[in-house]
Design a protein around this nucleic acid. Structure first.
Lengths: 203, 203
DNA sequence: GTCTATATTTCGATAGAC
DNA sequence: GTCTATCGAAATATAGAC
């Protein structure tokens, strides 16, 4: 329950434990992951885990923190020539990140545990979706400044764009369901860009 | 694991068990809910539960089925005078349903268990979000037929509208986080409607 | 720090009486 | 169908040697 990190100084066994725990939590969820399994997969004893982490909850928090730290930080967001190309590129990047298996797994496990560990939900949001939203907002601000879009509220425009990208296909993927007949992520991106251009384009 | 409902004929104790189980599952999640707790809250013995449901998984499936069955079926979707009023009304209805505490709790628990019980995810989608999407698509089809909107693909338009309604505020609520500064669901709805009108309006 | 071995609890599921 | 009582497995966490 204690959120304060002890000593994040790296240790070989400690990293093994974190790697194994991350794999288990993302694959099985929080509750279905046992400390025995983590110990086995990390190749250490259970007592070693408890030497580094006070409890299962503490281990989970450490995994989320490590995985979220700089999750999308190193991403470079391309500013192509023209609003359409820029939005296509940014939208594709966004969808790729959102639908990456690890991202979806993280989303599932955090959503499931959010009610019981609210701090983790905040950390996850600020490191993950929040970062994406911030970068997207920056893209819109740049396009407005360039005069390629007219949007008095770039945050709201980015919010709408992100929402359209994250519509039915994303939610079905999150639930493990197949895409609706004849619909693809690519067509969703293109349609979203066209709608944004009609709503916020210069003419 | 068996999906076939035995005899859904109502029984007082059976309903008590379902009520208690629903409350526990939505509040605590699947894994954190114990059969002992359900029995205690329902005022029956654990053996009684197993007389009606083969396993914990079976009980969970029964809860999801019952809660989803006709969840949004009785909803009447208003077709106001004019596209703007119609979309505002439909969007408000949609957001109210999506952000109802029970809906969010259901969403959380189904997302968490989707990987291990894929059938439930499908049932949930078809009874919940899928219904909403279908009704929204019908609204767009009607507006197109009336000539108030020009949308060659009403499904895609409804998808975009639903996505914009379900943007940052919804996801933050799902994670138990507060709304971003100075943003409200109402302003999100209004902005989404304006964007749709600009993109698909007649002029 | 790291291990083996174990304490203790809790949970899902069942036996058997009524 | 419903109860009391309990089994056996699995989980978290710890003790104690090295």
């Amino acid at each position: 329950m204690n959120i304060v990190r002890h000593q994040p100084r790296p240790s070989a066994k400690r990293e093994s434990v974190l790697d194994a725990a991350q794999a288990c939590f993302l694959e099985l969820g929080y509750a279905a992951t046992s400390m025995d399994l983590v110990a086995a997969r990390a190749g250490v004893s259970k007592a070693t885990i408890y030497a580094h982490f006070a409890s299962k909850e503490d281990l989970f928090a450490a995994v989320i923190h490590r995985r979220c730290g700089g999750l999308w930080a190193a991403e470079c967001w391309p500013l192509e020539c023209g609003a359409r190309a820029t939005l296509i590129a940014a939208g594709t990047r966004m969808v790729d990140l959102m639908t990456a298996p690890d991202t979806l797994a993280m989303y599932r496990v955090v959503v499931a545990e959010a009610a019981r560990q609210p701090d983790l939900a905040r950390v996850f949001w600020e490191a993950g979706p929040g970062q994406g939203k911030a970068r997207l907002t920056a893209v819109f601000e740049e396009l407005v400044q360039r005069g390629e879009l007219i949007a008095p509220d770039p945050w709201a425009a980015a919010d709408q764009f992100a929402g359209m990208l994250r519509a039915e296909i994303f939610h079905r993927t999150l639930l493990g369901l197949p895409n609706p007949e004849g619909r693809s992520a690519e067509s969703t991106i293109v349609a979203a860009v066209e709608t944004m251009l009609k709503a916020y384009g210069r003419n």
